[in-house]
Amino acid sequence: MLQFKRKRLLLASAGCVALMLLITPTHGDSDSEQRSYKMARPLELTPKLSLQLKLHAILLWSSVAFLMPVGVLLIRVSANVKSASTVRLLFYCHVASQVVAVVLATAGAVLSISNFENAFDNTHQRVGLALYAFIWLQPLVGFLRPDRGARARGAWYLAHWLLGVGVCVVGVANVYVGLHTYQERTGRSARPWTLLLTVEVAALAFVYLVQDRWSYVLRQREEAAAAAALGDGRSQGSTMYPANDHKEVVVVP
């Protein structure tokens, strides 16, 4: 089990490194991207365009920066639950949250493709295009889940987990990039929204880390309660007599 966890951690680290290498532009690309940002004209926000931008941000934020991480948390929590009915409920909530997230992301993609400039000359658009593909790939991988005990179950679980966590991490990062791009192109401050996103991400990360150790905390409580009950049983089983400090007086006739 420990060896499997080490392999999973190693593969996750390798996947993150590969993803960063794919996303991080080269020196020439960064120079051209900076020139394109400088040459890009500021957006003239009409009421219609402003509404479309806000709707696009809400759809993608709700999808990749909230519902998908919540789905990951739900399935992680189910691993520490003993009740079969609760596990089934958490699984269905996980599936429902991911389906809604895919629908919202698809709506955001349709909105951006049909109404915005799609030159794909900046990081936000390029990462977003790749993200849409992986968002649709993830539910397909989920529906192809092998049965428990099958030989391919471990490989499927690792791929499904890496893809889900990767989509969440890259999606949140792209929301940050989108807010920064909005501020640059429109001249309007996105600082309150960036702060709100940071608070949300910190809360989700805290819950993710705590629930991973919550089973250990519960097990320690159960062991402490069992030890206390055992100690009470031993104390009740043995007869305790109060100390008698009075000396007996023997009357001799």
Score class of each variant (00 low, 15 high):
G154V: 06
G154E: 08
A155F: 11
A155M: 09
A155C: 03
A155Y: 14
W156P: 10
W156N: 07
W156F: 06
W156A: 08
W156G: 10
Y157V: 15
Y157G: 15
Y157T: 15
A159R: 09
A159G: 11
A159I: 13
H160E: 09
H160Y: 12
W161D: 09
W161H: 11
L162K: 07
L162W: 07
L163M: 09
L163F: 10
L163D: 06
G164S: 11
V165W: 14
V165A: 15
V165S: 13
V165H: 15
V165D: 14
G166V: 05
G166C: 06
V167H: 06
C168E: 07
C168W: 08
C168F: 11
V169H: 02
V169D: 02
V169E: 03
V169Y: 11
V170P: 05
V170Y: 01
G171Y: 10
V172W: 12
V172K: 05
V172L: 14
A173F: 15
A173P: 00
A173R: 05
A173C: 04
A173G: 02
N174K: 15
N174M: 14
Y176W: 15
V177I: 14
V177A: 15
V177Y: 15
G178R: 09
G178V: 03
G178W: 05
G178A: 12
L179C: 11
L179G: 03
L179Q: 03
H180Y: 07
H180M: 12
T181Y: 03
T181A: 11
Y182W: 11
Y182D: 04
Q183T: 10
Q183K: 08
Q183F: 04
Q183C: 08
Q183W: 03
Q183Y: 01
E184C: 13
T186P: 00
T186V: 13
G187N: 05
R188T: 02
R188Y: 14
S189G: 05
A190I: 01
R191E: 13
R191I: 04
R191D: 09
R191A: 13
P192F: 00
P192G: 00
W193Y: 02
W193Q: 00
T194Y: 00
T194N: 00
L195I: 06
L196V: 00
L196C: 05
L196W: 02
T198M: 04
T198D: 10
T198S: 06
T198K: 01
V199H: 07
V199C: 14
E200Q: 12
V201R: 05
V201H: 12
V201T: 14
A202F: 03
A202T: 13
A202C: 08
A202G: 07
A202S: 06
A202Y: 00
A202N: 05
A203T: 12
A203Y: 15
A203K: 09
A203M: 14
L204K: 02
L204T: 04
L204Y: 09
A205D: 02
A205N: 05
A205E: 01
A205Y: 04
V207T: 01
V207S: 07
V207D: 05
V207E: 09
Y208K: 13
Y208M: 13
L209H: 04
L209N: 03
L209C: 01
V210Y: 08
V210F: 12
Q211M: 08
Q211H: 09
Q211C: 10
D212V: 06
D212A: 14
D212L: 08
R213A: 09
R213C: 11
